[in-house]
Design a protein around this nucleic acid. Structure first.
Lengths: 194, 194, 194, 194
DNA sequence: GCTTAAACGAGACGGTACGTCCGGTCTTGTC
DNA sequence: GACAAGACCGGACGTACCGTCTCGTTTAAGC
């Protein structure tokens, strides 16, 4: 009795809800989007939203997946440093766009809603971290990355600073910042052996 | 005429509010704390809260400052790697404690409230990043850290992964994680020369 | 779009609200009845009250209409003085009962709320003054009342003193008072001719 | 310890409060006057109001006494019907002026505040009904009013309709209304004996 | 004329109720 | 049976006033 029959789901309503939620989230921030407003803009009954999503966060997560798709493809020119620079710059641009508001809002939602947190972590691991790790693992096999380095830690040392600045706003994101992080991480912090 | 006379502020109420907010935030999460509940638990009129804080986030920020105090002191044994290990392990422990729930909730609040975002960034820059940078700068002067490295980027490469895991929960925080991040960052990702 | 769809109104809630309001008004006086208390006692959301009534006074007016029904029937024994005595005594009894508190409270409300004033005046004109005038007009046709007397003024001369004492409390309402007013008004104040 | 020393009372504040209350009551209705607003407009601390008056109603009652003074003097030309016509017309004019709003508001206040009700009844009995009864008693002695009529009832039959229309607004006050009431009451309702 | 206790202005305080907003559920037709 | 519409209960919001309670500051009485 709980799960409704997905086969009878109205595709028209489904799409209208995702689009309404996305538009509202962009223009007032996800925290200020209400289910009422989404339903009204989508021309949909509130029950239809509650029928298919357990919470506002879950809906926003679907909106994210729907809107973003496969954003994080890693280039592979053979030069891992160049590729990281390219891709981290792209991420920085994304994190400075209107989309950031949506993304940070969703992360905020995840702090109070475990289902959203799990979905978001999974999404992040699969779509974002996965390709990054694979690229670094390839570079490791190519001898461009030290063989005994922990790949997960390496990805985080490179990318976490971008999320950190987006979320905590201690300093602005910039291309210079990308270069500085790559320089520090690739070359390492200890003095160059002579 | 707008700002109330701070000299007449009731210290008793002020403390009771901070304590009530802290206790409530710990036991149900900051997002579910209501001004009504804080006022009731503190034995205070709601107006007294609204008189002195512009938003729930601003109050929680004060609670953070009040509750945490000087948490982030950097040790200085002369060995920067040992000191980073010590301190990052302490931060990891903090980020795995009940306090994390409070902290992430406040960061969530900051995503929808610019004043909180600013206050939090300032707090973070002054109390957390400051000592970390100073320790690395000293290590730089001591020759333990490469002279041309960007200190801000270095601090982020080391610490941002801790915030990243606390907030995004892609993987658990652990002592091993701390070691992996330090190894990757200190030694760097490129193959050891020689 | 503003007025809600009356067809979908919950009869259960409607009745519960009227009854809760009536009980609360009787036991603490209409001025001290709050919308919060009515909603709580009726087991109803406050919005449901605000959806259907524009003000507390409007609700109390509906309560009056609901509670009183057809109180003011005029008897007709053929003897207009006897009938007036009977009916004014009944009104006096009503104005000395607990109901008076409710009624005076509603009249008080009307002094600050024009909609209530209009509703109350209409109610009074239709349900109370109407039958009284009709009885006097019949008596006029029967030759028991002087043909050239202004019926509206006559009704007021007889009944206004009852409202006056209920509201201003310069002296108590009583059967003797009824007799005195009827005597003064029916026989008139000027000396008996002859 | 309770009653403050009246000798030290500030006349300046006393007057300012009465005036502020009167002005505010006229321009927004007594029900919407707040102690806060009176204090602010009078340039007076709220405590000063609470020190000298037990309730808003009590203050408004003093305002009434202060503002109205001896309004209800009865003329005495020797012709009681002419005198009643003159004076009831004056009362009607007063009840149609801005003052009516103030007066009805105070009567409304009295319905929920016994002290105000008592004060108002006393005021009414002394200042308004007293002179009216005395005039009718004189007329009785002069043979213009039937000897066995109840004077209190007679005064009410004449004047209560004016209060009734002011408070209940079933019909407008007017000179014609005054004439009709006087005609009905003086001549009486029963047919003229032939 | 000096002292001192009161009454005063200002306004912060603990509370209560306001009228609004929204979350999540339930109900009533329609398709 | 999923849907659009929207009424419903509940509960938090931020505001307005209540009546009480400090705070200094006049101010007028009595020494």
């Amino acid at each position: 009795m709980k799960p409704p029959n997905a086969a009878r789901r109205s595709q028209r309503s489904h799409r209208a809800i995702l689009e309404a939620a996305y538009e509202l989230a962009l223009d007032r921030g996800p925290a200020k989007v209400t289910i009422d407003a989404i339903a009204a803009r989508a021309g949909v009954g509130k029950q239809t939203i509650y029928r298919w999503w357990p919470s506002k966060g879950a809906l926003l997560l679907d909106v994210l997946i729907d809107a973003v798709g496969a954003v994080s493809e890693m280039p592979d020119t053979g030069d891992v440093v160049a590729d990281l620079t390219t891709q981290m710059t792209a991420v920085t641009d994304l994190f400075r766009s209107d989309f950031a508001r949506f993304y940070t809002g969703l992360i905020a939602e995840a702090q109070a809603d475990d289902a959203v947190a799990r979905g978001l972590a999974e999404q992040l691991a699969d779509r974002a971290e996965g390709p990054r790790r694979q690229r670094l693992e390839k570079a490791q096999r190519d001898g461009q990355i030290r063989a005994d380095v922990d790949i997960a830690a390496a990805v985080e040392a490179l990318y976490a600073p971008l999320y950190y600045r987006m979320l905590l706003r201690t300093a602005p994101l910039s291309v210079d910042h990308v270069h500085a992080v790559i320089d520090a991480t690739i070359k390492g912090l200890r003095p160059n052996p002579v």
